[in-house]
């Protein structure tokens, strides 16, 4: 009796479940082929030495131990963190500053917003084609000419070991601040105007208004922007591949570029998979720490 009713319930549940699976079938296939299977094969080949073609050798923890010995990986890691440091705080601050300015009732605000968003909708290749020319070390190239007007001598930008990485970070800011400005604007517009009125009555004005009302209330937005821009910065690739090729002398070799180089130029798929796992863990840890420290996702009022 009990078995029969259990069986009946099972059949009923099965019957109500089945019609739903076709709706998620394609999602599942894409997930399996492009996420699940790659995950398994990443773990698998991280224990091998293989070029995928002629040889395949099990090396145990060899690749993992090599992580600690590879000097260039150390360079790539420090370049990546340096890039994030040079990119994230200035981008977050600058986009907030611009957002506060265009959030006022000023003439043409939406045109400014669209103009600032323009680099963000443009592909990295187009941007790099243009800026490879603009940042040329020639004294009459656009960037150097404009610096010359300010009395600054010609710079070597991308061909200089010291300036290449900061130049790329600044290009990253130029490309993405419009996007973060939009996120800040959404945050700003979510602040109830009564709070500003209350602060005005209390005698606050100008930048003090922002210091005591805007900035504290924007904490959830700030958390989101810092997390997202850090994750983006740690994975920077396009501008490096196109503009510097990791050079000069490894000055712009970041982790993702190093992974690319190890796998697709040197054919070391095992070692590059191991670095990919390391990158994944680093991003996971940083996201977790930032999320905790900034209390990501928490409401303030």
């Amino acid at each position: 009796m009990g078995v029969a009713s259990q069986r009946r319930r099972f059949l009923r549940k099965l019957k109500s479940s089945l019609p739903w699976y076709p709706f998620i079938f394609i999602n599942i296939v894409v997930f399996v082929v492009f996420n699940f299977v790659p995950w398994i094969s990443m773990l698998q080949i991280s224990f091998q030495e293989t070029d995928l073609l002629s040889f395949r050798k099990f090396v145990g923890l060899g690749n993992y131990l090599a992580l600690f010995q590879d000097k260039l990986l150390g360079v790539a890691l420090s370049n990546t963190f340096l890039y994030a440091l040079m990119y994230v705080p200035p981008t977050a601050a600058f986009s907030l500053f611009v957002a506060i300015l265009v959030n006022r009732k000023i003439f043409g605000a939406h045109i400014f917003r669209a103009a600032y968003f323009l680099p963000n909708i443009t592909s990295i290749s187009v941007i790099c084609l243009v800026f490879l020319r603009f940042l040329s070390p020639r004294p009459d190239a656009p960037a150097n000419y404009l610096l010359g007007l300010l009395g600054i001598p010609p710079q070597r930008f991308l061909v200089s070991v010291e300036q290449a990485l900061p130049s790329l970070a600044r290009l990253g800011l130029w490309e993405s601040f419009g996007y973060y400005m939009l996120i800040w604007l959404a945050g700003l517009q979510g602040i109830p105007s009564e709070l500003y009125d209350a602060a005005l009555v209390d005698g606050a004005s100008g930048w003090r208004l922002h210091r005591y009302v805007t900035i504290p209330l924007l904490r959830p937005t700030a958390a989101f922007i810092l997390v997202v821009s850090t994750i983006g910065a740690l994975q920077v690739f396009g501008s490096i591949y196109i503009m510097t090729g990791g050079g000069p002398v490894y000055a712009t070799t970041t982790v993702v570029y190093y992974i690319y180089q190890q796998a697709f130029i040197l054919g070391k798929f095992g070692f590059s998979s191991t670095i990919s796992i390391l990158l994944f863990l680093i991003i996971l840890a940083i996201t977790y720490l930032q999320g905790r420290y900034l209390r990501f996702g928490e409401e303030v009022y």
Partner: peptide, 15 residues
């Protein structure tokens, strides 16, 4: 959705 997509680039190519 939370995962960094670049970490999977090498094994995606392998597959």
């Amino acid at each position: 959705l939370m995962m960094p997509s670049t970490a999977l680039i090498v094994p995606q190519f392998v597959v």
